[in-house]
Simulated assay, not measured.
Amino acid sequence: MTSHRRPPRTLTTPALGPVLGPVLTAALITGLLAGCSDSASRGEKLAERAPTPTATPTLPVEREESAQIGSYVALGDSFTAAPLVTAPADDDGCLRSTNNYPTLVAEALGADLEDRSCGGAETGNLTAPQRTFAGTVPAQLGALDADTDLVTMGIGGNDFGVFATLVRCAELGVDDPDGAPCTERFGDAGAAELDQQLAIIGERLTASIEKVRRRAPDAEIVVVGYPRVIPPAASCPELLPLASGDRDLVAGLNRRLAAVQRQVARETDVRHVDLYAASASHDVCSEEPWVNGRATVPGHALAYHPLATGQRAAARLVLDAVEQD
């Protein structure tokens, strides 16, 4: 957990933290991406089912006026925690960066922050403890109370190993770059199963938002979506060894997961940061990526996880959402 209150400031480029040891790095990867090899048997036909993203929102550079927010609670998984962007803020195994977007938002607003995001978190960990490689952390919703002014939620991709499926499919191209190894593992039954799982994730997110409202009835709630990891057309094997025949499949999964969050936010009438749309020119293969490629580099980012640039962009978008009329 991270708690602080600082004067409002303009977002600046965060410095990279010290390099973490190899043992910690190995443990982190094992904990956050466990189950990848078993999850590649789910789903197909994603591209045609996925909605087209909306226009990219503008990214404000400075915050001249801050919303009156005193207490801010961040809920989420590794895309909120931003592991390895810097050394972790705590030693609880969640690997929250000291320059993740919740920290940047809290600093810009001058708000007290309770950052409960944790690598590997599922929606169930909002209400139940989570085991990490360093121990057990309490349920994330425990940080909420009637005085909470702002809640951000970025979670759902670890349920049913959906994000692990995406990563596993991306890696299968190492041995079969011109084939479709992931697609060949799917079938109609797998497609139906993944459809079911994504629908359940939506239901869980909806239920979670209602639980947040009960615990923090006066809080502004912002659902923060997942960014674009997989480009729809570009190829960069050194960063993303995705087989050519699996591109539509995996890009569609990325798009659909973001779409679930977008739909839930709309149906529950909460704010939404459409990070997928905003990152249309910032995928892994782009010149200015917001997400890391396949190489884990402590002080830079975990493989296929947010970079410092992506966290700064997410912070700006959250601030923009909070300051809407």
Rank of each mutant, 00 (worst) to 15 (best):
L95P: 00
V162H: 04
R96L: 08
S279L: 05
G310Y: 01
T132C: 03
D159E: 08
T183A: 15
L249C: 04
G154N: 04
L104P: 02
R247W: 02
S37P: 03
R168Y: 09
D77L: 13
L198K: 02
D176N: 13
L253I: 13
T127C: 09
V284P: 00
T268D: 03
L198S: 03
A34V: 04
T12W: 09
S41G: 10
V322Q: 05
H300C: 03
R96H: 10
R316E: 13
V85I: 04
Q324E: 09
T136A: 15
L16M: 12
G119I: 02
P177I: 12
D188H: 09
L150H: 08
K211D: 15
N99A: 14
R214A: 15
S279M: 08
T10Q: 14
R116C: 00
T10P: 01
A251D: 15
G124A: 14
G124T: 05
Q311R: 03
L275P: 01
H300T: 06
A234W: 14
L33V: 03
V318I: 15
A314V: 12
Y101F: 09
Q68P: 11
A143K: 03
T54L: 15
A303I: 02
R228Y: 03
G157A: 11
V318R: 01
C182V: 08
P232F: 04
T12H: 11
L242D: 00
A128T: 06
F79V: 08
T10I: 15
G190Y: 02
E288R: 12
R214F: 07
R214T: 14
Q324M: 10
G179W: 10
E114N: 07
T206E: 08
R312W: 03
T58E: 15
P217R: 15
A47S: 09
F160C: 09
D159C: 07
S37W: 14
P181M: 12
T127H: 05
R185D: 07
A15S: 05
D218K: 12
A207H: 10
W290I: 07
V137E: 00
L144S: 13
H4C: 06
R214Y: 09
Q196E: 14
D38I: 07
G119D: 02
V322M: 06
L24H: 13
S41N: 08
E184C: 08
D188W: 15
T56K: 10
Y304P: 00
E65G: 10
Y276E: 03
T86D: 07
P129T: 03
A251P: 01
G179S: 11
L126N: 01
F186P: 00
A233L: 14
E65T: 09
C94V: 14
A108M: 10
R271N: 09
P53R: 12
P231N: 04
P298A: 12
L317T: 00
P88D: 07
A234H: 13
A67D: 13
F160A: 14
P232T: 07
A315P: 02
S41W: 13
R213W: 12
